[in-house]
Simulated assay, not measured.
Amino acid sequence: MIFQGTEDKDARALALAFDKLGTEANAFTERDSTCFYVKVLKKYALSAIDLLAQMLSYPAFREKDVEKEKKIVIEEFKSYMDNPEQKVHDMGLRAIWGNHPLTCSPLGRIEDLVSADPDRLRLFWEENYTSDKLLIAIAGDIDERDVKDIVSQYPLIKREMADARDQSTPSLDPILVSEDEDTEITHIVLIGPGVSYSEPYLYPASALTVILSNSMGARLFQKIREERGLAYSIYSYLLSFRDTGAFASYVGTGSDSDEEVLRIILEEYRSLCNDTISNEELERAKAHLSSGIILGTEGTFGRMEYIAKSFYSYGRVIPVEEVLARIQDITPGDIQETSNRLFSNNLGIAVLGKEGKKVGERLWRVLRSYLRD
């Protein structure tokens, strides 16, 4: 709705104003934050920042625009529902955190989209788009003082309000979440506790995603895909927030191999808990992680996103060199200790497929047996 216009510009006028500056203007929403950004040539940078600040400070929330945008977002929601691989990840979070707000898709719930109106949207904006929650990150050749002179004129930078959101830490209660859906393959997410931004296990946990599946030589990639041909897509990921986190492994496989695939994943989890990883395997994971950090911050957009996330998470911008040093400090003992924290207990599972509920019950028994041993 923010892009639908301000008090003195409708959506088209606002779009043309950005186009006149040659900008790439857009936004994206994550589970705990929203980012509005412009990518623009240096000579237009201050004008683009001014326009972005206007847009965020004076949204109109016209009723006709709200109704139009609702239709667009509902279509986006339908597209999300048609993507089982995307949907099963939200199911996975419900498998460990129940109905906590962090388990909701950034798109929200369809009933909330349908019932949205200008008053509710404005109230949300007033409660959440305030100076104490606002972070401005810029990557490029620009004078910080000029930026401050521009944005300090706008009320958004000065307004504060008590936070009305639920910010409680989700409790960990692993269960099976399964649904039947007419898909060609079965989508499985094995999920458990992760680490928050501030925990010392963050970097070893990140290395575990590479060791397990996020590189060509990774354990699960080799054993499930390359050696046995049981799946096309297999990967692990870490979600970290300020006070909690989740570690998950996803695989999409046929109904005749789902149990075999789950057992392979659990065997590798157990191996990482019981056996010390070799220095050679760890060095490969470190190289992969380090390369991702360096390549991801080469462009201005990647650098801007890194600056914002770093300050949002830690209250300071951590130099890339410091992150690389922390990666190099990971030891085989760190990997084993972190594995025992993540994989020894409290694992839930989400299953989505043609016989998702039936398959889910079978895989849940396999998982329970693993946790008892």
Rank of each mutant, 00 (worst) to 15 (best):
K87N: 12
D90E: 07
G92F: 02
G92A: 15
G92V: 05
R94Y: 03
R94T: 11
R94V: 08
A95T: 10
A95G: 11
I96K: 01
H100C: 12
P101F: 01
L102W: 06
T103G: 14
T103Q: 10
T103F: 11
C104A: 14
S105G: 03
P106E: 08
P106D: 02
R109F: 12
E111Y: 02
L113F: 09
S115D: 13
A116G: 08
D117H: 08
D119E: 10
D119G: 11
R120Y: 10
L121H: 03
R122H: 06
R122G: 09
F124D: 06
F124K: 05
F124Q: 07
E126K: 02
E127S: 14
K133R: 13
L134M: 11
L134C: 06
I136S: 00
I136P: 01
A137Y: 04
A139G: 08
I142N: 11
I142C: 12
D143R: 03
E144L: 04
R145N: 05
V147P: 00
I150Y: 05
S152F: 04
S152Y: 02
S152M: 09
S152I: 02
Q153F: 09
Q153S: 12
Q153G: 06
Y154W: 01
P155G: 04
L156W: 00
L156I: 09
L156Q: 09
L156P: 07
K158W: 10
M161E: 15
D163R: 06
D163C: 07
Q167N: 15
S168M: 11
L172D: 10
L172K: 11
P174I: 11
I175V: 15
I175D: 14
S178H: 08
E179W: 06
I185H: 13
T186G: 15
T186P: 05
H187F: 10
I188K: 13
V189G: 15
L190H: 04
I191V: 09
I191E: 07
I191K: 03
G192T: 03
G192Y: 00
P193C: 05
P193I: 00
P193H: 04
G194P: 14
G194T: 00
V195N: 01
S196D: 02
P200T: 04
L202T: 12
